[in-house]
Amino acid sequence: MNIYVGNLAHSVTNEELRELFSEYGEVSSASIITDKNSGQSRGFGFVEMPNQAEAQEAINSLNDSSLKGRNLKVNQARPINERPRRPRY
């Protein structure tokens, strides 16, 4: 299952994200999305967990939990065509 993790502190690393989710089971990948120009964290990332039950437990446990002073927003990632479109300025 692909999991969206939002409201991340900009100092959180890929490894810290992996460690956090690995408490609930196997993690295939963990990546924080960065700005193409500056390389800085954009404050969200994705975690891939192959076991659905473990992934759901991680979502239930970690949503609205605190990491580095920020309350995480954790849910199942939706495919790009199911997300609401944001206006471009």
Score class of each variant (00 low, 15 high):
residue 5 V to S: 06
residue 5 V to W: 02
residue 53 A to W: 04
residue 68 K to Y: 11
residue 23 E to T: 14
residue 10 H to M: 15
residue 46 F to C: 02
residue 12 V to Y: 02
residue 35 D to G: 08
residue 20 L to Q: 05
residue 48 E to V: 01
residue 19 E to S: 14
residue 54 E to V: 07
residue 32 I to F: 08
residue 48 E to P: 03
residue 21 F to I: 01
residue 13 T to I: 10
residue 70 R to D: 15
residue 34 T to K: 11
residue 64 D to P: 09
residue 10 H to Q: 14
residue 7 N to G: 09
residue 40 Q to S: 14
residue 14 N to P: 13
residue 60 N to S: 09
residue 23 E to K: 15
residue 70 R to Q: 15
residue 71 N to S: 12
residue 38 S to Y: 10
residue 74 V to E: 05
residue 18 R to L: 12
residue 55 A to Y: 01
residue 4 Y to K: 01
residue 71 N to E: 14
residue 9 A to T: 01
residue 38 S to W: 09
residue 22 S to M: 09
residue 16 E to D: 13
residue 64 D to V: 12
residue 24 Y to R: 12
residue 76 Q to M: 15
residue 9 A to H: 10
residue 41 S to A: 06
residue 63 N to F: 09
residue 30 A to Y: 02
residue 52 Q to T: 12
residue 62 L to I: 06
residue 60 N to L: 07
residue 44 F to R: 04
residue 11 S to P: 05
residue 64 D to M: 12
residue 61 S to E: 04
residue 35 D to N: 13
residue 67 L to T: 04
residue 20 L to D: 03
residue 63 N to D: 15
residue 41 S to P: 05
residue 67 L to W: 10
residue 44 F to T: 00
residue 30 A to T: 03
residue 18 R to G: 08
residue 38 S to V: 09
residue 75 N to Y: 10
residue 64 D to A: 11
residue 15 E to S: 08
residue 28 S to P: 06
residue 71 N to T: 08
residue 39 G to N: 08
residue 12 V to D: 02
residue 24 Y to S: 11
residue 45 G to A: 10
residue 62 L to V: 07
residue 57 E to I: 12
residue 65 S to T: 11
residue 50 P to F: 06
residue 73 K to V: 13
residue 66 S to P: 08
residue 43 G to M: 06
residue 65 S to V: 07
residue 68 K to V: 07
residue 44 F to I: 00
residue 10 H to D: 15
